[in-house]
Design a protein around this nucleic acid. Structure first.
Lengths: 225, 225
DNA sequence: TACTTAATGTAAACTACACGACAAATCGCT
DNA sequence: AGCGATTTGTCGTGTAGTTTACATTAAGTA
């Protein structure tokens, strides 16, 4: 890939708007690039040098495997999200990996140390980055408190609502979401069993609230959520 | 309170080690200070100007109230923790407030804008701050994935273990935790009902794993957790 | 010390949800 | 078009955990 294209990939992202061309290039020189297709396992955090990843295209999930081989979804990463060691510190104990959810996935990565240096040179970048991380945390916190207090149905509702708001195509009160998740995925995210998720989704469909298919989810009236 | 004391309060914190005296003073000038005792409601996020808070002493919980008046614990803040608008952005939609858990609570606060300016002047501060936020996020994430997959007993176990590791006084394998939480609090945190929490705690006591009282929790052998 | 309030203990009835076990539908592939 | 694989649909059955309801104990405080 040409340097120019890489440059564009980064430049495109809000986080780097404040940077000069030469600064971005400084990052780009060591930028790794990866493409993947559905269900590919993408990286193990215990791979090599600490990196920060930026998802340019598609959707992936971060999963953790416990001793018994049970997957738990730790995060869903969407286009434009940063992921990896957001703490800027590397610990390699965890048994995490990423899996592509969509067919076309493009990830670009850069070394943590380079990013750190750039932040030192450019305080504005640091500030923006901080806001990014903070925002992400707020989201997680909301999910969290949602999970513990509400029942499965409510959890599914809020999840779909959030999803719609983040990624849906609005048309008045009608929303269409490109569905790259299986019901099993959704179940994991909202913390319930696959069967229950299926039941609840069908229930919602019966009530004409949504139309579910493997490719898309259609919400008839988002205000009812 | 004297300027010098305020200065000390901030200087004391890891986050500000990289700052020069004059920089800290710059923050201190607008530092607010609050004391509280047990069960006091401390602030509403929708109060006035956006601030960042630093808990100097004691423990507090951040609670959210829903329409029905149900409390959900969003966070437990410990001595040395920063809290408030970690996103560095203020949204005032949420119905959150903080409540003192211990009898002596000291909170110091500074204006978000001042902090932001300081970060611009001192990239190192930004970096440290980011790491702080990132670390906190990691913790929350772990709790999160713990919550969805495990049953109440396991959740209680991990909670107590974490608590011990963060705040407990170790004596070999024996640990003593100063207990500023009620069983109802604990129940909320691990996402179960008060009664279940009570039962499980008593069960653990019968098995001689812990000794529970309102003032402290004593763990006989932390390695058994 | 007595009185009030908050925290803890206990038990029975009920329910949401998990889990196993298949059947049916849909997708991708050659 | 046909075949294997993945995803979705649907049932019981079992159980962890909620809920209601009240008793007991500890902690403030007048």
């Amino acid at each position: 890939m040409s340097e120019e294209l890489k440059y564009w990939y980064l430049r495109d992202h809000k986080l780097f708007w404040t940077l000069s061309m030469s600064q971005i290039k400084q990052l780009c020189i060591i930028t790794g690039f990866k493409k993947a297709k559905k269900n590919d396992v993408i990286y193990f955090s215990s791979s090599d040098v600490p990196r920060i990843f930026l998802l340019k295209k598609g959707n992936i999930k971060i999963v953790e495997m416990d001793e018994d081989g049970n997957e738990t979804i730790k995060d869903i990463i969407q286009k434009g999200d940063l992921f990896g060691e957001l703490t800027l510190e590397n610990d390699r104990n965890s048994n995490e990996y990423a899996k592509a959810l969509t067919d076309e996935v493009a990830i670009c990565s850069f070394l943590m140390s380079d990013f750190e240096n750039l932040m030192l040179q450019n305080p504005n970048l640091a500030l923006t980055y901080t806001k990014f991380v903070g925002l992400k945390m707020k989201r997680i916190k909301n999910n969290y408190s949602n999970l513990i207090s509400k029942d499965a149905k409510t959890r599914l509702f809020t999840f779909i609502k959030d999803w719609a708001e983040r990624e849906g195509k609005f048309n008045g009160n009608k929303v269409t979401i490109e569905n790259y998740l299986t019901q099993a995925d959704i179940a994991q995210i909202i913390g319930t069993s696959r069967q229950t998720a299926t039941q609840l989704l069908n229930e919602m469909e019966e009530k004409q609230l949504i139309y579910y298919s493997r490719k898309e989810i259609f919400i008839d009236d988002i205000t009812k959520f």
